[in-house]
Simulated assay, not measured.
Amino acid sequence: MLTVDFDRLGVGAGTKVIDVGCGAGRHSFEAFRRGAEVIAFDQNASDLNDVDEILQAMKEQGEVPASATAEAVKGDALDLPYADGTFDCVIASEILEHVPQDDRAIAELVRVLKPGGALAITVPRWLPERVCWALSDEYHANEGGHIRIYRANELRDKVLAHGLRLTHTHHAHALHAPFWWLKCAVGPSKTNHPVVAAYHKLLVWDMVSQPWLTRTAESLLNPLIGKSVALYFRKPEVSVAGA
């Protein structure tokens, strides 16, 4: 389940990509399939071990171009261990809502991005997230949980302050919003609740089968209740004196 639109980012063979806060690796896997040189970056060693195993299996099974490379790296998003302007594309999907020093994290994302490069940031959307917080403290008030709810324009302005240019925004995962509302209503830890379990089965079926009906429904509902908002930026090219 991708939140980021890779066609919009132009990720392909030879693109240097870092997926900051990669989690289970969904965006790293897609970049790898497209032939990119991928860094799957996270602070969770257990998650990274799983991601690394899948990346290696993809390579061994011929699911990626021969030139593609991928590496799982453990580290801190507030201090990325890369030089300025290292990556053509930087992805930070569903991580900033967890980070107390989000301004510092954003500065690092911008710093390692090449001039002319693309930055994609996604966070939970304000309205669906407010509903979740209202229904359940357990949903967010836990170690490593969500510490803030962004308005899209607030996040946009934090990034624009670093001199980047906003190129596009969209919403995603509308069918997931009611699922999380249900989970919060019955208790996020009650995964075996029959209604929650039935809805989860529907979401899994939808992700695997991608039928026309649910894909169309979600595209129509995304502007209204999309669970995530995605923002895309470009870093200005370096100006050349006399050009």
Rank of each mutant, 00 (worst) to 15 (best):
P211T: 10
N192Q: 10
P178L: 00
P194N: 01
E138W: 00
L231H: 00
H173P: 03
H170N: 13
G226W: 01
H168D: 12
A197H: 12
K201H: 11
E138K: 08
L160H: 11
T216V: 05
W181A: 07
A161N: 05
L213W: 09
A161I: 04
Q210T: 03
V195P: 03
P194R: 07
H200C: 07
L203G: 05
P211R: 05
S219H: 12
S136F: 08
L135E: 10
L231D: 09
F179N: 04
H168A: 13
L221I: 08
V195L: 14
V159H: 01
V196Y: 03
T167A: 12
L224N: 03
A198H: 01
H200G: 13
H171F: 08
H140T: 13
A152E: 15
I149G: 06
S219R: 15
V229S: 13
E154H: 06
K183S: 09
L155R: 05
V196I: 00
V196H: 02
H140M: 05
G145L: 03
P223K: 04
L164D: 12
L166R: 14
W212Y: 14
P211N: 11
A174D: 03
G187P: 01
K227H: 08
R156K: 11
K190F: 13
A141G: 02
A217Q: 10
A185I: 05
R148D: 06
A185Y: 10
W212S: 15
L135G: 00
G163T: 06
L135T: 00
W205C: 04
W205T: 08
M207S: 14
K183Y: 08
G163D: 12
V208S: 12
S189E: 13
G163Q: 09
R148H: 01
S219P: 03
W181T: 04
W180C: 01
K201I: 06
L135W: 04
R148Q: 07
G144M: 09
K227C: 04
T167N: 11
H200E: 09
N192R: 07
H140W: 14
A177T: 15
L220Q: 08
V204A: 14
I147K: 07
S209M: 14
V195I: 15
L224T: 00
N142T: 11
P211L: 07
A141L: 13
K183L: 10
L166E: 15
R165I: 13
A174E: 05
Y150R: 03
Y199P: 01
Y150D: 00
L231Y: 06
L182K: 12
L203H: 09
A185S: 14
L166Q: 15
E218G: 04
K158P: 05
L203K: 00
D206N: 13
E138N: 03
L220D: 02
L155I: 06
I225C: 03
A141M: 12
R151S: 10
E218C: 05
I149D: 10
E138R: 07
W181C: 05
A152G: 06
